[in-house]
Design a protein around this nucleic acid. Sequence first.
RNA 1: GCGCGUGUAACUCAGCGGUUAGAGUACUGUCUUCACAUGGCAGGAGUCGCUGGUUCGAAUCCAGCCACGCGCACCA
Length: 785
Amino acid sequence: MEKQYNFKKSEDKWQKFWEKEKIYKFDAKKKGKIFSIDTPPPTLSGKMHLGHFFSYAHQDIIARYHRMLGENVFYPFGVDDNGLPTERLVEKINKVRLFDLGREKFVKLCQKTIKKILPEFVFDWKRMGLSCDFSSIYSTISPEVQKLSQYYFLELYKQGRIYQKETPVLFCPECQTAIAQAEVEEVEQQTYFVDIGFKLKGGGQIIISTTRPELLPSCVAIFVHPKDKRYKKLVGKTAIVPIFEQEVPILTDDLVDPKKGTGVVMCCTFGDTTDLEWYFKYKLPLKISITKDGKMNKLAGSFEGLPIKKARKAIIDELEKRGLLLSKKEIIHIVKVHERCQTAIEILPARQWFIKYLDLKDKFLVESNKLNWYPKFMKARLDNWIKGLKWDWCISRQRYFGIPIPVWYCKRCNEIILPRAKDLPVDPLHQKPKKKCKCGSKEFVPEKDVLDTWVTSSLTPQIALSLIKNKKVREKMFPMSLRPQAHDIINFWLFYTLARSYLLFKKIPWKNVMISGFVLDPKGEKMSKSKGNVVEPQTVVAKYGADAVRYWASQAKLGEDLRYSEEEIKQGKRTVTKLWNASRFSLMHLKKYSPKRVNPKELEDEDKWILTKLYKTVKEYRNFMDKYEYSKAREVLDRFFWKDFCDNYLEIIKPRVYNPESSQKLKSAQFTLYTSLLSILKLYAPFMPFIAEEIYQMYFKKFEEEKSIHITLLPKPNKKLYFPRTAHNFEFAIDAISQIRKYKSEHKLPMNAEIEEIKLKTKNKKLLKKYTPLLENVLNVKKIK
RNA sequence: GCGCGUGUAACUCAGCGGUUAGAGUACUGUCUUCACAUGGCAGGAGUCGCUGGUUCGAAUCCAGCCACGCGCACCA
C-alpha cells in the first residue's frame, strides 16, 4: 500500500469502473423493495455549478444509503434540454439571435449545439461520484419524451382541462413570449415617480401620480379612493389625457391608496395587475399602446416605434415642455421581471393555451399534505404558493425550440384538430392531420407555439419510469419513492409535477420530498457572475478531489443554506487521508489474516469496547439516515472514527499487534480491526464513495464477494458484538489514558516517553488493578499507583 | 402586510426540560512517535439575541419584543 493516496488516479479509476461494471444499473427483475428517485434533470447550461454539486451530493448520499440497505435503487439521469433556457444558451454560445436566424435554422443549430456540449456537461455529474444509472440518459427534447409530453397534453385536453383563450397574459417583450406566474421575479430598479396634470372637461385639473407615463395613450380611467374627501366632488366627471387627448371617467375603488402620491391613479391597459382587475371589474375599453417586442405602437402617435424606456423619457420631456409635469421624483421601486432575462414584464392580450387549475387549489393543498417533507417546514412554501395562485397555467410559448403543441386548425371552419395518439410525436408545422376536418376541408393551419418547458418537466416521473420496459414493474413504481430538489424551484417543478399528477392520475407523484438549500459565498452572499464570487466545482474537485467536496456538501442539513468554505473541504481531504493511513496501519496487521468466526466471549476488553462503540454508532447513523439527516449521521461517524477508533483504539492495540503475547490475543485484535474498519468504510461509502471503494478493492473485496463496496450491505447493529458492561468499565481505562497523556503533555514529554511512576486519581481500585498491565503497556509507564 | 426559518466560543454549527453548555475550524503551547506533522496531546475562549412567564429546575417550553435571511402578496 502506497504511502500517499492519489485521489486523482483513484477517483478517475473508480468512476470508470462503476460505469463499465454497471454497478448502479437498475435491474427490474431483482426482487425486494424498490427505492425510486425522480432525479432532477439539470437544465442544459454551460457547466455544472456549485449549487448543483451541493444538492446532487445530498441526493446521492441518500441513494447510496438505500442501495446499501439492500433496496433495489432506481436512480435515473436526464437532461432538460428543451425550451427557453436551451434557446438562450444556444444564442449565447453561437452568438446569434433566434428571431434573426429564423425557425428552421435555429432549431437545427440547437440540435447541433446540444449534441456537441451534452457529453461534457454530463461528465461533471459522473465525476462527482453520482450513483445514477448513466447507461440510459433521457433528454426532454428527444422524440420519446416529445411523444409522452404530447400524449399527456391530449389527455388533459380530452378532460377539458386545457383551453385556449384570447386574454391579457404576462408577456416578456425580450423573449417575445407569454410566460407563467412562476416565471415572474422581482427586482429593484431606479425610476421616476411623476405627477401629471389632467385637465377636466368643463374646467379644472386633477393630478395623477405614475411611474409609467409612457402608458398615457393606454389610459382608460382615473381612480380615487371612495372615502377621499379631496376628490369627492370630482368623481363622475371626465378628464382629458394630456398629449393624447382621450376623455376618461373619474371612478372610485378601494384598491387606491390615498397616501400614495396624489392619491389619484390612472388606469391603463395594462400597467399592472390592478389595471387588469379594474379592466374586468368596470368593463373598461382596451387600449394597447405597446407591441410584443416592447415598442410603442400607432396609438402612441409621434412616439410610435420607441422602445418603452425611451418613450417614457420622451413623454416626460414632452409633458415638461407643456408645463404638465408637476413633480418628478427619483425612486427605487420593485419591478416584475422575467426570471430568464430580467426584462420588465408587460401585460398584453394574446391568444394562449392554458391548463385550468385555479379551481383545484384546495385539492393541491390536500396533495401537498400527503407528502413526507424533509425538512418539514418546506411544505409551507408550496402551500403558500398554491394559496397565492392567480392565473391558470399559461403553457404556450411563442418560441422555436420546444415541444410543439400538437394542434391544427381547420382553415375553413376553425375547428381544432388533434392528432391520434399513435401518430405522436407530431410537429404541426411539418406534418398534416391524417384525416380531413368534419366540415370536409383538407386545409389546415398549424399551431406554431411550443409548450412551456415545465409542461414537460412536470412529467419527469412518467419520463423516468418510461425507461423501464416491464410494464408491471413500472406501474408498481408509481408513486415514486423520492423527489430530491433544491428550494428555488418549489413553485415550479415541485408544484407543477404535483398538479400534473393530480390532474392526470389523482395520485401524488412521490411519497417523499427532500429539499436542499443553497450555496452561498464565504460571506453568506449569493454567488453571481456580476459579483465575481463564483466558485466552480470543477476547480475544487480537481484541487481536493470529489470526496472532499462531497464531505463539505454533506455538512449542511436539508433545506439549509451553506457557505462555501475551503477549510471544510480541506477537512474532507484530511478525513480521506486519515482513512488511508488508518487503513495502512490496519491492513499491515491483517496481512496474514482471513476472516473467521470468533467467540465473542474470548475478545479482549478493549476490543469489546470499540465494538460496542461501533454498535452504537451504526445504530445512530441508521436512525439519522432514515430521517434524511445525513449531516448528523456523518457527525456520529466522524467522532467514532477519529476519536474512538484512531486516537484510542489503534493506540491501545499497538503493543498487542506489534508484539503479540499470544495468537489468541492477536486474533482478537485482528477480528476487531477487520470488523470495525470494514464498517467504517461502508458507513463512509455514501459520503466519500471513491476512497471507500479504493480500500475495499485493495483488501476486503477478496473476502466479501461483492465486486463493489457500494452494493454491499451496510453493517447492522450486531447484538452479539455489544458489551455494554465491559465497555462501561473500560471507560475507566480511557479516562486513565487521558490523565496520563495530560501529564506527559504538561511535562512536555513525547507520548511514548517512559515514566517511572505515576499517581492516578480514582475511587475504583478494582478497575485500576484490572487495567494496570494494559495501561503500563500502552503508555510506557513502569508503575501506576 | 402574510408566512417560514435563524440568532449559542473569533468563525461554522451541534445540543431543544435535568450534573460544571459541546464539536470542528481558527488561536496558543507542546511532542518527530515504529498508520498519519494532511498527525498526536493539551490549553485559553461563551450573561446560549432581549424581556417576562411556566417549572423544584430553562439555551431548551410559552408569550412579547429586537435583529438577520428567505418565500408570497402589495407597490399607480
